[in-house]
């Protein structure tokens, strides 16, 4: 039987909403694909777009950014800034030929464990369809 490609997804989660949402999914014993590697940040506004580029360089097949719903940012406006930034970053990545399905963003609140599960499933499926990311992955020689 041919083995299914299992993508690596790096997920940058806001401490106040999505990280707690993912925690809720865990404590509620919801099953979701184990392909996501979560990086907790204090706010989506703290995520430098270069984090995303660096994640792709270092072996991610997909990147997910998730934070509070608009209007619910712990710091009042961080997610609004992130939304502008990552809309542009995604257009730039797509323009250089990176598959549109590799980079996603979502709003998941602390009470939305079930939504988190769906978001992860969707992101993993999309990255799986896009296949392994090799375009500008860093070649680790002698590491």
């Amino acid at each position: 039987m041919e083995e299914r490609f299992e993508p690596n997804i790096v997920a940058f989660l806001c401490n106040w909403c999505s990280y707690a949402g993912a925690d809720l999914a865990g404590t509620s014993r919801m099953q979701y694909p184990p392909n996501v590697h979560i990086v907790r940040v204090m706010c989506t506004g703290r995520i430098n777009p270069l984090f995303v580029v660096n994640a792709f360089q270092q072996g991610a097949d997909g990147v997910l950014v998730s934070g509070c719903h608009p209007g619910e940012c712990h710091y009042r406006e961080g997610n609004y800034h992130a939304r502008r930034r990552f809309t542009l970053l995604r257009e730039l990545l797509v323009f250089t030929g990176v598959d549109r399905r590799r980079f996603n963003m979502s709003w998941v609140s602390a009470s939305e464990g079930a939504k988190w599960r769906e978001v992860v499933r969707e992101a993993v499926e999309m990255a799986r369809e896009a296949g392994p990311f090799e375009q500008f992955r860093r070649e680790m020689i002698g590491w």
């Binding site: 270069l50 660096n54 360089q57 542009l88 500008f136």
Partner: peptide, 25 residues
Amino acid sequence: AWLFRSVNLSENAAFHLARAFHLAG
């Protein structure tokens, strides 16, 4: 080290993405 200094496809791509993005807007 946001970017390695080596001149290769990966670092060059990251450099150009970063340069362009820093000039967005």
